[in-house]
Design a protein around this nucleic acid. Sequence first.
DNA 1: ATGAAAGCGCTAACAC
DNA 2: GTGTTAGCGCTTTCAT
Lengths: 360, 360
Amino acid sequence: MTQPTARTRRLNGLRPTLEDVARGSGVSKSTVSRVINGEGKVRAEVVERVREVVAELGYVPNSAARQLVTRRNNAIAVVASQPQNRLFIDPFFDLHLRGIRKELVAHGAQPVLLFLEEEEEYPRVGDFLGGGHVDGALLFSLRACDPLPGMIERLGLPAVFGGRPLVRGGETLRECVYVDADNRGGAREAVRHLVSLGRERIATITGPYDQEASAVDRLDGYRDVLLDSASPELIERADYTRQGGAEAMAALLDRRPDIDAVFVASDLMASGALQVLRERGLRVPDDIAVVGFDDLAPIAEHTDPPLTTVHQDIEGMGRLMARLLFSRTDDPGAPEPSAAEPGALSSVVTPTRLVARHSA
Amino acid sequence: MTQPTARTRRLNGLRPTLEDVARGSGVSKSTVSRVINGEGKVRAEVVERVREVVAELGYVPNSAARQLVTRRNNAIAVVASQPQNRLFIDPFFDLHLRGIRKELVAHGAQPVLLFLEEEEEYPRVGDFLGGGHVDGALLFSLRACDPLPGMIERLGLPAVFGGRPLVRGGETLRECVYVDADNRGGAREAVRHLVSLGRERIATITGPYDQEASAVDRLDGYRDVLLDSASPELIERADYTRQGGAEAMAALLDRRPDIDAVFVASDLMASGALQVLRERGLRVPDDIAVVGFDDLAPIAEHTDPPLTTVHQDIEGMGRLMARLLFSRTDDPGAPEPSAAEPGALSSVVTPTRLVARHSA
DNA sequence: ATGAAAGCGCTAACAC
DNA sequence: GTGTTAGCGCTTTCAT
């Protein structure tokens, strides 16, 4: 690194400012600002000199000062309000987050991750989100009746949700933009497939439908197809974990040893269910056909037998969330999503499709 | 929510400012500021009125403005420069991050996570870190010769590293503060244990010692004990993954079928090694004794047989990192860590201990 | 093409 | 106790 010369030495003991760079290169702050932001017309010669001084001083723009006037930060919050370890275990989040990050980065925005585990963290996170640190927020994996959607709306912060948020009874969100898979349609397809295979006693292992909209929707899809034959006896609720799937499968088998198929609302749960089936000496798909949901490659391709499941483009959904957000933050005058102005910016439901492997 | 009255309606169309609150409650900005920050003496009556108006307006302080004058943000960056999915799979990071977050939150600081996967992301992240968004940084899981330590030092941003960073050949960090386990000592203890069991041909499966200091140190510990009997034939390098551990075990067995013990430098790798041993019909610990490293409960307690391993307090190390950082950020006048001023703030090596289960 | 000056929203002396 | 004032570092008209 070059030693700062007298000409460029900074005044105070702190980090160099625009002023320091201006002084060092013998131009005004405005000019330096123009160079930094690659804007207006500046003589090439001047540009170069300024650049040198910037490098020499190790100048980095203070984004607080910048934010104060531009009201932009080039940073987007990515918020997950779930126990961190659940996030770390489930491949779904890995993919989802990867899609989000890719698109954010491609757009030159800095993704800033916020995890919320405890109730008490909401106020602090709310202040952070409202404090102007970020230009917008992408939220996923919210818990049931999460206060976040309401807080976000009150703050007026542009946001897009991953998965339709389950809202509190009374509260009504003016309009919240989300990206979700066609959970209901996918579930219907899965169950229809089982029906087409001639299965007659089709059970289901659901997600936590008191907690997540996706679980509700997948169960609804199951019911759509089975109608009255969807006896409560054939429905067992679990929690989207492998262990939960295994327990639910066991419960189902104990209650109704005659079932010949099961639609499991997630691949992770399905892998648990398959294990129980194997332990009990039941052949898949001969004795019992199994269909999962998610199509997480690391799981579905390596179960025994490989899992027939409903595919959703998880990474693509992440990217879509980011793109939707930018469509709002890029244009400050853009229409706020509101009931009064419909279609300005609306939620997206992405398609799903059945991937037939060997379990059904 | 109360409807803003004429008295409190904000002037511009944007978010309410201190000024708006002041106007609304008939006091000066300073007073409002005092109330918000719970500082100086303000009449209880006034406090209440201001609070009301704040709630009514949904006022949230603009932290850019605040940062500009206080030079603090109450946010700490937590940076991991590893492929995100590696982070998501390894329980080590989950624990480490949990410790970090707990301590940060307890201190009222907002943890802000930054993942770096690609080379190209460094400049953007550097600008973010240097831009005043955060008061300090906690970095872990750096890649080999990561440019981050150098960047951080140049920026003068207070930082603490998780694990001793491996530095580029030429470059010399003035002094970088880190928290690390006593990897070398732990490895020594593990190998000594095997020796005390009467094992004579003790192999080792190492981590990526070209990438991580911990791998170097654990290998050094192995050599410390075995000295000349540490033949290169008994050493197999892997990459801290389960799969890598399995492959290394196979390679070792092919090369030296006579080994009677193996020190595996991580639990994840050890679980892979145990599987290979089982597949080959070798009994553990009868035929081959195995000792791991990390003591990750979800792994070590559930291997077959349960794994004897070296325990390190991962969560505690995370907390310690945060505490070390605060000791610097809390006191702006605090001594910068520098060779000239030794002991002002130095790295910490935390103890390890052997946990005997059944694999050795 | 470049400079001067105003001001973003807030805190921190300092007066009263 | 409370108000006044002066910036923090930057972008942005508006002159020139």
